[in-house]
């Protein structure tokens, strides 16, 4: 038998360990998730909607045809003082005050998206913090935090908002406070469950065996491994917040005139539903599409980021 020379041996081992052929680009968790998200047409539709809405909100001053708060007393209202229907000047018609409906919808996207992102960022920060200490340290803290989430999740949301907004003055800040008071619980629950399972993983034990300190284990080894479902929840949470804002504003407790918000627009439009139905229909459709977009994206992200489905 001839002895294998050194280079052949190396090749043989390369082959045995599966690195024949060559160099695929290294893909991490995020690259992998993105690849899978791209293959999911429904989720991509959601992503496109979300992207368009975001663009619309950012570019509102540029793309809106009119000032959203300007009242066109002559052109914008009929001689009877009613809203005018769609025309080439007011593409989607005007509202009861002679303001351009399309412009108000575009500016309303700013309110909705800002609220959605701000509320969920606060929720995520609070929820992750409480969820991590609850899941990692357990015992008394865990019981306390989890019973608190039980209470929060069991409380009727609208009732809480009505009570809260009766005390505080209605407006953006009050909406944020109310939604954060309730919304953090979902995040805390999710994070706690994830931390509970990840902290028992062997790589956490291995890190501890290397002398890694507890804070570092939490930030370096546990948090990055629980972040994926949080992102999915974030997308779903934004749609929840947008819908919630519309609901609260519809009840007259949310965003106050003259600021354009989808919920307020639908509320004021409701009384015109027979004579000027577009006041309700167009903002309603926009709200529907936006919420749908975030939901689709959220579901897609949840699937794409789930390591169990990894192929």
């Amino acid at each position: 038998m001839t002895r294998l020379n050194n280079s052949t041996r190396l090749t043989t081992r390369n082959w045995a360990e599966g690195n024949y052929g060559r160099r695929k680009k290294s893909v991490g968790l995020w690259g992998d998730a993105w690849r899978r998200l791209r293959k999911n047409p429904v989720a991509m539709a959601g992503l496109v909607i979300v992207a368009l809405m975001t663009l619309m909100a950012i570019l509102a001053p540029v793309i809106s045809p009119h000032d959203p708060n300007h009242q066109y007393m002559n052109r914008g209202l009929t001689s009877m003082g009613a809203p005018v229907g769609p025309s080439s000047f007011f593409l989607l018609g005007t509202d009861q005050n002679g303001r351009d409906l399309l412009s108000r919808m575009i500016w309303g996207a700013r309110i909705s998206l800002t609220l959605g992102v701000v509320i969920n960022s606060l929720n995520a920060v609070i929820g992750i913090f409480l969820g991590v200490i609850s899941g990692y340290f357990g015992k008394f803290v865990d019981t306390l935090v989890m019973r608190l989430t039980d209470i929060v999740l069991a409380f009727p949301f609208l009732l809480l908002m009505i009570a809260l907004l009766a005390v505080l003055s209605p407006g953006m800040e009050s909406i944020i406070i109310g939604f954060v008071l309730v919304g953090w619980a979902q995040y805390a629950r999710l994070v706690r469950g994830q931390v509970l399972s990840v902290k028992e993983m062997e790589y956490v034990q291995a890190a501890r065996a290397l002398g890694v300190s507890t804070p570092r284990i939490i930030f370096q080894h546990i948090l990055p491994n629980v972040i994926a479902p949080i992102i999915a929840l974030f997308a779903l949470g934004v749609s929840w917040a947008i819908m919630g804002e519309a609901t609260v504003s519809f009840l007259g407790l949310g965003i106050q005139a003259p600021t354009a918000s989808w919920g307020t627009m639908i509320e004021t439009g409701a009384s015109w539903i027979t004579s000027a139905p577009w006041l309700v229909i167009y903002p309603g459709i926009l709200l529907l599409i936006t919420v749908l977009g975030f939901n689709l994206l959220g579901d897609g992200l949840r699937d794409a980021l789930d390591p169990h489905l990894r192929r």
């Binding site: 290294s26 991490g28 993983m201 062997e202 790589y203 291995a206 501890r208 002398g211 370096q220």
Partner: peptide, 29 residues
């Protein structure tokens, strides 16, 4: 731990952190 005594675990499939590059995991210690 890690400096004077180190340990190798049984299952290499689960003993490495899936979200960190291997270089980072070696460099950590």
């Amino acid at each position: 731990r890690g400096n004077d005594i180190a340990m190798i675990f049984q299952d290499p499939m689960t003993s490495l952190n899936p979200v960190l590059r291997v270089g980072e995991q070696i460099a950590e210690a």
